[in-house]
């Protein structure tokens, strides 16, 4: 019997989740368009802002557009193809991983691919539109964009998985994990030049907005081996952290030490 590789299996389960999220067409359309309008409005505010102030610590509108486009595109892909991350803490707390543990393939992959968020298509759409129309990118930037997008996505998902894994230790982790993820997005939607001191430290550690968008943006504007290496290192560190925390959490869960009911 041929065994499907993990990426191939992931693609199949994620495709199933996407098909499931698209089952209610009216809801999907409403959410996608709602998100498009919402994101478009926020961009308009920034356009007005930069029309008035021209620059924030060296950041101009096209830099802001690159940042906004990138974070929307990252949140979009995360929500569409890895949508299970959003409610992962609740999934853990509800004991829904029991069934996955009786099955042969890796649990984390199954958790991430169990859901797909309709609004994420709206994020992805706005993200791409902004990147194409306002970010001042050319074809030559495409490889750097692909690099930054992929790395930012991995750091974002890794941080979100780490936050959700807190559910293995803390009963109230559901809203905590969501809040931390939302804070990370919030910090990722402002010009990087505004952070200094403590806020800069937070943006490059606890809520890694720095590695989700700021370093990728810097790399796109001035590609250098140094910023590429830094981003790659961040990807490895955050992915390893997420895998480690999830693994330890799962071990703890299977020992029955997690804050969950037992039958």
């Amino acid at each position: 019997m041929a065994r499907l590789s993990l990426p191939a299996l992931y693609a199949r389960t994620a495709r199933a989740a996407i098909a499931g999220s698209a089952a209610d067409r009216a809801n999907l359309t409403l959410q996608v368009f709602g998100m498009l309008i919402n994101n478009g409005f926020m961009l308009t505010l920034w356009v007005l802002f930069f029309a008035g102030f021209h620059s924030v610590g060296g950041w101009r509108l096209r830099d802001m557009a690159l940042l906004t486009g990138l974070i929307y595109a990252i949140a979009g892909v995360a929500g569409v193809a890895f949508g299970g991350y959003r409610d992962m803490a609740a999934t853990i707390l509800n004991g829904e991983i029991d069934a996955l543990l009786t099955q042969p393939r890796p649990v984390l992959a199954r958790l991430l691919s169990r859901d797909s968020l309709p609004i994420a298509w709206g994020d992805l759409g706005t993200g791409l539109a902004i990147l194409i129309a306002f970010a001042g990118l050319t074809w030559r930037d495409l490889p750097a964009l692909a690099f930054g997008w992929t790395c930012g996505l991995i750091v974002y998902l890794s941080a979100a998985v780490t936050f959700a894994s807190l559910a293995f230790w803390v009963g109230g982790a559901r809203s905590l994990a969501r809040d931390l993820t939302d804070f990370m997005i919030l910090m990722s939607t402002y010009p990087g030049s505004i952070y200094s001191g403590a806020s800069r430290a937070i943006a490059y550690t606890l809520l890694p907005a720095g590695f989700v968008v700021l370093t990728p943006v810097a790399f796109l504007r001035r590609p250098s081996l140094e910023s590429a290496a830094m981003e790659a290192a961040a990807v490895i560190v955050y992915a390893a952290l997420a895998a480690g925390v999830f693994h330890f959490g799962l071990t703890r869960y299977r020992r029955g030490a997690s804050p969950l009911g037992a039958g």
Binding site: M1, T13, A16, A19, D98, A99, T102
Partner: peptide
């Protein structure tokens, strides 16, 4: 394994699709 209070199937999809996916998860070809 069947947990009476939890579904292992994909709620929004047809039963057939769940069977296909489980087939892949357990390398059933």
């Amino acid at each position: 394994v069947v947990f009476g209070q939890r579904s292992q199937l994909w709620a929004e999809l047809p039963v057939r699709a769940s069977f296909d996916l489980l087939g892949h998860i357990y390398d059933q070809r």
